[in-house]
Design a binder for these strands. Sequence first.
DNA 1: ATAGCTGCAAATGCTTTGCAAGGCC
DNA 2: GGCCTTGCAAAGCATTTGCAGCTAT
Lengths: 137, 137
Amino acid sequence: MMSSTDLEIKLRSAGVRPTKPRMALGGVLFGNGDRHVTAEQLHSESVSEGIRVSLATIYNTLNVFTEAGLLREVAVEGHKSYFDTNTSNHYHYYVEDEGRLMDIENDQITVSGLPSTPAGMKVSRVDIIVRLEKDAE
Amino acid sequence: MMSSTDLEIKLRSAGVRPTKPRMALGGVLFGNGDRHVTAEQLHSESVSEGIRVSLATIYNTLNVFTEAGLLREVAVEGHKSYFDTNTSNHYHYYVEDEGRLMDIENDQITVSGLPSTPAGMKVSRVDIIVRLEKDAE
DNA sequence: ATAGCTGCAAATGCTTTGCAAGGCC
DNA sequence: GGCCTTGCAAAGCATTTGCAGCTAT
């Protein structure tokens, strides 16, 4: 858990004004360890916890948090964005049958053999998604 | 270039009926080396080459080709799917400023340190996207 | 002949936006 | 007070679907 004071500091440090909806959503997002949510998931979860926010505000808040570096957006497949509360460098499993995203709990992953970056460009991020399906065994 | 006979064989072997639109789109897709296109790009390119197809057919064809294993779909970021004519195992650069996808021309890439796959699951595919931005140098 | 395609337009799903009312510093 | 934020509903995009007519085998 994270105290509301800590949360307020977290938001302020990132340059995000701690409004009531942002504090409430921040509590849901950052109060329970690393999470991966879609806008729709966050909305229904918030509503069922008694937080009354519109879906527009959910999107707005997720975007503001992402731009402020509090969340990381993960593209898995068209028409659905996942937001990850773990902004450190790490990779993901994606369970295709369930549409569920998980962190790969291992910081030993290394990618080798990458060619040199094209001239005038630099790497902004490396995304790795390991897609999983049920074992037909 | 690929002859229309070869293209027809390619489609038939994949279990895809070689209709007129499919042959025409197949020519655009497979006639010029490895490509990465969005539906919209393929549509406007086809139209400017005098191929009259509706956007619905573009989507339908891309999906049929993908299911038949002739294309591979790459998720880069919300609201846009890229289709790659290179279906072999390889990874991508994504140039963020231009929305352009490129194959990483190197088969030396290896990923090590992956933890064992969760029980009952197997890896269906590993996607790696190296995001590039302009070097601010 | 008949199962499968295509095109059109309407529908869908996710996300953004315009604008008036309200909240934060 | 003034600027930023919220909510609602409407708009926007990319993609899919229903259906009547057409095509490949």
